[in-house]
């Protein structure tokens, strides 16, 4: 009886009783501590003037100096604007695109045709932006590219898709949608398969046409998934898609396509301005984190306390 009382009071008792589970969970603790939490400690270099030779502890504190430098620097202001603009366009066009495609796929009656379309549309998802960047550089090339050949055939002049700042952002958005639109439908189609067919039958009996069934049965059924996807994506407002841009951009389009992540990479790893670029990175991560929290609260409130991710 005494032992039991002690056990109940001792918060570490569970670790002894279930030591086997703890051992099995141990790699998770080690990996996340080593590869996620300890780097968090390194964030303090954003408040220091970090020198490799002096180490993190030995480097001098400078307070918010790096952030001040960051915020008044015209190049960072430009980079910040680019980031927000590119990701806003991605959310505006890229987020609804797979929902629309999923609805259109769901309307196809021929199962085999639907399957073929799905399989083909998934393809780009499985390839890296290194490969796709290479493919688009060739496909959109002004001299040998397919698209420019067609433009020339109709008497137009070739467009420098990858080097003209006025079209490059458009290229990013369209190729971004091109890569993920097919795969993005998977989760929505899974959700549609779960909608009760009686709802469709009832709607038909009530005289609803196909469009009305989509609007009043399919879409409302998708709302929970759409909100979760939206929350998970909301942090991306400051995350304009490093992989894609890094593999597609070049100096002639830096003005419109340089984003926070590419900027941090060049400033930090190429120019070795560690503290400055760590500050830029931290600035981005904090905004991203706040956005996720904010969107979660917002979605919960709109859905009457439900549909958040926590």
């Amino acid at each position: 009886m005494n032992v039991r009382k002690v056990a109940r009071r001792n918060p570490w008792h569970g670790y002894i009783v279930h030591w086997q589970l703890v051992v099995m969970f141990f790699p998770v603790i080690v990996a996340l501590t080593l590869f996620h939490y300890i780097p968090l400690y390194g964030i303090i270099i954003a408040f220091k003037d970090f020198k490799l030779s002096k180490g993190i502890m030995g480097s001098e504190w400078v307070g918010l100096l790096q952030f001040q430098k960051l915020l008044i620097m015209p190049s960072f202001q430009e980079v910040f604007r680019n980031t927000i603009l590119i990701s806003a366009l991605r959310i505006l066009f890229g987020f609804p695109a797979p929902i629309l495609l999923a609805i259109l796929l769901n309307e196809i009656a021929n199962a085999r045709f639907k399957k073929v379309v799905q399989t083909i549309s998934y393809l780009p998802h499985f390839l890296s932006w290194v490969v796709l960047g290479g493919i688009f550089t060739q496909f959109l090339s002004p001299s040998t590219g397919f698209i420019n050949r067609i433009i020339e055939f109709f008497g137009g002049t070739p467009v420098y898709f990858m080097a003209d700042p006025s079209v490059f952002v458009g290229v990013l958005i369209v190729t971004g949608i091109w890569k993920e639109i097919g795969w993005g439908t998977v989760i929505y189609l899974a959700c549609m398969a779960g909608i009760n067919t009686e709802l469709y039958e009832a709607a038909t009996v009530d005289g609803a046409n196909r469009l009305q069934r989509v609007l009043h049965v399919t879409l409302p059924g998708l709302v929970p998934v759409i909100s979760i996807q939206f929350i998970l994506n909301s942090g991306n407002l400051v995350n304009a898609g490093f992989d894609q841009i890094f593999n597609m951009y070049n100096e002639s389009v830096y003005r419109v396509a340089d984003i926070i992540d590419t900027y941090v990479y060049r400033r930090g790893l190429i120019d070795q301005q560690y503290s400055f670029s760590a500050a830029a990175g931290l600035f981005k991560n904090i905004i991203s984190f706040i956005l996720v929290l904010f969107t979660n609260v917002l979605v919960k409130r709109l859905n009457g306390g439900e549909g958040g991710i926590w």
């Binding site: 703890v22 996620h36 270099i45 790893l269 560690y274 990175g281 991560n285």
Partner: peptide, 28 residues
């Protein structure tokens, strides 16, 4: 009955939403 299950779940999920960033990770 995993001990402190809520805490450890949070411990994991947190890493999905906040990270050290490229430079601190690189230095470590």
């Amino acid at each position: 009955y995993f001990p402190h299950r809520t805490f450890w779940t949070f411990f994991m999920l947190f890493t999905m939403f906040f990270g050290g960033g490229l430079i601190p990770t690189f230095l470590w």
